[in-house]
């Protein structure tokens, strides 16, 4: 274990998030089992009060989850000089087997948490809590993942010993040595990937605009938004990063959040994450359109989500295009 203030901060964040989610999930399960809106019993009243606590706790938690995702990458970037061969966060994360699983869990949990908040928001629009059971069932599904993330993250930091030889980002994401998922993504030909990126974004935007105007084809948009998210991540690794670094061999998805590149990574990732959460949220809400108490709230909520997602994807694509246009790298 490395006694670095940032490592301690990460561990505190992970433990806090886990604690709050487990606490909420415990009450969530109680609500799931005993909820009865018709009843005026004391238990029901207590549960109704608890819902406020749980949703407040979870809003904080999920905010923390987002900041801790960036803190995690930042910490890895701070620690890289301690490891032989590591040249940035990518190398520091591959020091032991738990680095990348933590990152993947963090991203996954953030997306799940975002969907939960969408559901929670929709539920709060109605007077009779129509989605409350589904909401807390989803929470019970998320909780184990959050706990798993904490355990894996603790394992990563506790097993971190300085001086272990690791592959640096030049080796891990470089197209010369095809091995592991990172290198396979990097080995994808840059220009076709760029085309795939633009086509997927364009398809998502077209169906999104159609859904926004006509109110039809919501599932299609959700699916396309999720596809565009994954294609964008692949494109960042295989070609967008090349234009940002202006180096044809540097494929690292982490260095773009560093100061040297004007923190452009934050902008890109935040736009991308909000686009996919809003887009996927549409598919989560569509089944509940028929519920009487939500029938007026959901359509406008869906339109707002669609607008958020479309604007985020447009902004993301514009920033990427601008960055490619002003880049000195020509391929």
């Amino acid at each position: 274990m490395i006694m670095h203030p940032a490592v301690i901060a990460n561990i505190i964040a992970a433990l806090t998030v886990s604690l709050m989610v487990v606490y909420s999930a415990y009450y969530g399960l109680q609500i799931y089992r005993h909820w009865n809106i018709e009843s005026g019993s004391e238990l029901q009243l207590t549960l109704e009060r608890r819902t406020y606590l749980v949703s407040t706790l979870l809003s904080y938690t999920f905010g923390l989850q987002l900041i801790s995702l960036f803190l995690y990458v930042f910490t890895a970037d701070t620690l890289y000089p301690l490891f032989v061969g590591a040249m940035c966060a990518a190398g520091a994360l591959s020091v032991n087997a738990f680095g990348y699983p933590t990152l993947i869990l963090k991203v996954g949990n953030f997306l799940l948490a975002g969907l939960w908040l969408v559901l929670n928001h929709a539920d709060n629009q109605a007077y009779d809590y129509p989605l409350i059971r589904k909401k807390y069932l989803l929470l019970a599904v998320i909780a184990p993942f959050i706990v798993a993330e904490t355990i894996v993250e603790l394992a990563y930091f506790l097993k971190l010993d300085a001086n272990v030889i690791t592959s640096c980002c030049g080796a891990l994401f470089s197209s010369e040595r095809v091995e592991g998922l990172g290198s396979e993504i990097a080995a994808l030909p840059a220009l076709p990937t760029l085309w795939a990126f633009y086509i997927s974004i364009a398809a998502a935007l077209l169906s999104g605009i159609y859904f926004y105007l006509r109110g039809k084809g919501g599932y299609v948009y959700s699916a396309l938004a999720v596809v565009a998210f994954f294609v964008s991540i692949v494109a960042i690794i295989s070609c967008i990063s090349l234009y940002i670094y202006e180096l044809p061999t540097h494929h690292c998805p982490f260095c773009i959040i560093m100061e040297e590149y004007n923190y452009i990574g934050y902008l890109l990732y935040i736009l991308l994450f909000s686009a996919v959460v809003a887009g996927a949220g549409i598919a989560v809400l569509i089944p509940f359109r028929g519920i009487a108490s939500l029938s007026s709230a959901i359509p406008s909520l869906l339109r707002r989500l669609a607008l958020t997602s479309i604007v985020s994807y447009t902004a993301f694509a514009s920033v990427v295009t601008y960055r490619i246009a002003i880049s000195n790298l020509v391929m």
Binding site: A6, A9, I12, T16, F70, L71, D77, Y263
Partner: peptide, 13 residues
């Protein structure tokens, strides 16, 4: 920014 984020997690959170 990294120091400030760390500090945030150690105190405000």
């Amino acid at each position: 920014a990294e120091q400030l984020t760390t500090l945030f997690f150690l105190t405000v959170v």
